[in-house]
């Protein structure tokens, strides 16, 4: 067993090219045991290549991989007996039923305990449709079957590529709870995703990859420590005094566009770069200056960090509308 505090998965200087195109350029990952690790990156950054390398589908040009504390090299296929994976889209025999597909999958690799298939069909909510052919499944059902397939051998390390893909909101919540439960039980869950909001609520540790290199890795708290914002809506005529007041706390940006609503032509938003936990302090400072905010929002911005690190760009407005996680939303004055 890998003891707590050790790494369930690590890569050092992982390099992979497809012809002249460099997909991974010295990737260094450190995934602690017993966490949900969110692996983020824009399209073409190398996420799927990493997944394929970790599951032995591809062989690295250079670098090293360690799975569950031991080196994983070409020929070390049995190391994957303790790893469950869903790489890219779920793949099945379309003419077989969901249950028969899981049986087929169970015949390969590590032995699967009796009763495990039924248990997993129940877990992913496919028991009622288990005898239907997979060709008649929706994308979400295939995805759930794929997750069941990844869990077949009760793996200590779970590698999931876009697991929320195609799932309905209830399915996403159920999947999130399942993954959190697995991590709580000491298993390690490595999730590649482009759904930043999903990763933000699911992952303990996040790694961001861009152009084949890891550009940031750490716990969500440490990464988002300086990414919080609090936004306040104030009357247009009080914009100047409000800004002066709030600048004593942190840098402030005024949003040019008027706020929506009946007071749209009179109100303006100010964005204060402080953690959401300081929203009350922002409100109090304004009140002490006799400025009463008509709206207050706060959030931590994984997307903002992501875009900064991966070379993208987005206005704070877009970020707030896109993925902001309100901690203290709604009008306060």
């Amino acid at each position: 067993m890998t003891s707590p505090g050790t790494l369930a998965l690590s890569t050092r200087g992982l390099r992979k090219s497809y012809g002249s195109r460099l997909a991974l350029d010295g990737l260094d990952l450190s995934v602690p045991t017993g966490v949900v690790y969110g692996f983020l990156g824009p399209n073409g950054a190398g996420k799927t290549t990493t997944m394929r390398l970790l599951t032995g589908l591809l062989h690295p040009d250079a670098g090293a991989i360690e799975l569950l504390g031991r080196p994983f090299r070409r020929g070390d296929r049995q190391r994957l007996f303790e790893v469950g994976a869903l790489v890219e889209s779920p793949s099945f025999y379309p003419y077989l039923s969901g249950r028969a597909n899981l049986r087929s999958l169970a015949a390969a690799g590590a032995a699967v305990p009796r009763g495990r298939i039924e248990e997993l069909l129940e877990l992913v909510g496919l028991r009622e449709r288990a005898n239907d052919k997979v060709s008649g499944y929706s994308l979400g059902m295939k995805q759930r079957l794929g997750i069941a397939g990844a869990l077949l051998s009760d793996p200590r390390l779970l590698l999931l590529d876009e697991p929320a893909n195609g799932l309905d909101p209830a399915g996403i919540v159920a999947m999130r709870e399942t993954l959190r439960r697995l991590a709580a039980a000491g298993k390690t869950v490595f999730v590649s995703s482009h759904l930043l909001a999903e990763v933000q609520v699911l992952a303990d540790v996040v790694g961001i990859i861009a152009a084949g290199r890891l550009v940031r890795e750490g716990t969500l708290d440490s990464l988002l420590g300086d990414q919080g914002v609090v936004r306040v809506r104030v009357p247009a005529e009080q914009l100047g005094p409000a800004r002066s007041t709030l600048e004593s706390i942190a840098p402030v940006e005024a949003t040019e566009a008027p706020a929506a609503g009946s007071d749209a032509d009179r109100d303006r938003w100010l964005t204060v770069h402080v953690p959401p936990s300081r929203a009350a302090e922002v409100n109090r400072r304004l009140a002490e200056a006799s400025i009463f905010a008509s709206g207050l929002e706060s959030g931590t911005e994984l997307e903002q960090l992501f875009l900064e690190l991966t070379g993208g760009g987005a206005s704070i407005e877009g970020v707030m509308q896109g993925i902001g996680t309100p901690d203290a939303g709604g009008p306060v004055a």
Binding site: G56, R77, E88, Y93, L105, A108
Partner: peptide, 12 residues
């Protein structure tokens, strides 16, 4: 269909 991929990823 990607079923060989599944088997290889399971360590077969």
């Amino acid at each position: 269909w990607g079923t060989l991929k599944n088997a290889v990823a399971r360590g077969e």
